[in-house]
Simulated scan of single mutants.
Amino acid sequence: MSAGSGRRIPPWGWLLVAVRLVAMLVTLALHLALYYLLAPFTRHNPVPRWFLRAIGHVAGLEVRTQGSRPAPGTFILANHVSWLDIPALASTAGSAFVAHDGLARIAPLRWLCRLNRTVFIARHERRSVAAQVGQVRAALGDAGVLTIFPEGTTSDGTARLAFKSSLLSALEGLDDVPVQPVRLDYGRDTRAIAWVGEEPGLDNALRILARWRPIRLTVRFLPPLTPAERSDRKRMAAAAQAAIERAGA
């Protein structure tokens, strides 16, 4: 572990990390084989969601849900605490994700994201908004449900960062698409698993994999935003953030 993380893994924790990493590699190999086996026979390949659910399980994630799960064609706005948010929403909502285009520069990660119908958007190029709207609509048709984390990065889960309305520009003009806020609540485990500050991502991942205790997460599906709340992207961002904060009160 780096000195910046301030949290060291004990010797017995490294054993658990090793076991879980091997299990994840085996899980990846099995699901890739199944993905390509099913690919010719299905447009909506379910294997990426099965894979992400399995990865969460291997990492010690225990998920329960509250509220009505999103209908097909729904766009989710969720708070962001950990990389575990992704397997949690993939397994409970069947969601694919919208990610910033920087991730697309990492070839192995881009390849895995593409398997799950990830939409890559350019956050700072307003000229590409029309193309991004088209990408989002096509991805909703392919994946059924899409999620974006409007904070733009992970928070400590206790004080949410301001939702960035610029990240929602791809939703403008999609008035027929339901927008549903979701609160991800790790309870007392929040501070222990949150990836914040100067902690490197690898250190955070290893620290989580070294935990013996399960990580309990409640996924709260909140009511979709009303037409008035989504009349423009700034109101949409504010309304979603307020709903998520109320759900944790």
Rank of each mutant, 00 (worst) to 15 (best):
residue 167 L to E: 15
residue 164 K to H: 12
residue 203 D to K: 15
residue 150 P to K: 12
residue 181 P to Y: 04
residue 143 A to N: 06
residue 111 W to G: 14
residue 134 G to I: 06
residue 203 D to V: 13
residue 150 P to H: 07
residue 95 S to T: 08
residue 191 R to N: 08
residue 117 R to F: 15
residue 132 Q to E: 01
residue 216 R to W: 10
residue 109 L to E: 07
residue 186 Y to C: 01
residue 166 S to A: 08
residue 210 A to N: 11
residue 159 A to L: 08
residue 216 R to N: 15
residue 212 W to P: 13
residue 143 A to W: 00
residue 169 S to C: 11
residue 208 I to F: 04
residue 188 R to W: 12
residue 98 V to G: 10
residue 206 L to R: 12
residue 168 L to H: 02
residue 195 W to F: 04
residue 141 G to Y: 14
residue 175 D to M: 10
residue 214 P to D: 07
residue 105 R to C: 04
residue 140 L to R: 14
residue 128 S to E: 08
residue 211 R to G: 01
residue 187 G to R: 01
residue 82 S to I: 12
residue 141 G to E: 07
residue 148 I to F: 02
residue 145 V to D: 02
residue 100 H to N: 10
residue 160 R to Y: 12
residue 143 A to P: 02
residue 115 L to E: 06
residue 183 R to A: 06
residue 214 P to K: 13
residue 83 W to I: 10
residue 185 D to P: 06
residue 82 S to F: 14
residue 156 D to F: 03
residue 113 C to P: 02
residue 212 W to F: 07
residue 192 A to P: 00
residue 123 R to H: 07
residue 147 T to M: 03
residue 160 R to S: 13
residue 146 L to K: 06
residue 113 C to L: 14
residue 178 P to S: 00
residue 146 L to P: 04
residue 118 T to I: 06
residue 130 A to V: 07
residue 142 D to C: 11
residue 85 D to N: 09
residue 193 I to E: 03
residue 193 I to Y: 08
residue 100 H to S: 12
residue 173 G to P: 15
residue 104 A to M: 00
residue 214 P to C: 00
residue 179 V to A: 06
residue 132 Q to W: 03
residue 153 T to V: 07
residue 178 P to T: 05
residue 208 I to E: 09
residue 174 L to R: 02
residue 112 L to K: 12
residue 98 V to W: 13
residue 199 E to F: 15
residue 208 I to G: 03
residue 175 D to P: 07
residue 91 S to I: 03
residue 197 G to I: 05
residue 196 V to W: 06
residue 138 A to L: 08
residue 89 L to S: 09
residue 173 G to N: 05
residue 201 G to L: 13
residue 168 L to M: 13
residue 185 D to I: 15
residue 113 C to F: 10
residue 193 I to A: 06
residue 104 A to G: 06
residue 120 F to K: 01
residue 181 P to C: 12
residue 107 A to V: 15
residue 158 T to Y: 12
residue 147 T to W: 01
residue 109 L to P: 09
residue 113 C to E: 12
residue 171 L to K: 03
residue 138 A to Y: 08
residue 166 S to V: 05
residue 153 T to E: 07
residue 207 R to A: 14
residue 100 H to M: 10
residue 137 R to F: 01
residue 115 L to Y: 01
residue 152 G to F: 09
residue 170 A to H: 02
residue 214 P to Q: 14
residue 208 I to S: 01
residue 151 E to P: 09
residue 183 R to Y: 14
residue 105 R to N: 08
residue 82 S to T: 11
residue 133 V to P: 07
residue 162 A to M: 11
residue 159 A to Y: 09
residue 154 T to F: 08
residue 171 L to P: 02
residue 149 F to I: 05
residue 133 V to H: 09
residue 170 A to T: 11
residue 143 A to V: 10
residue 88 A to S: 02
residue 150 P to M: 10
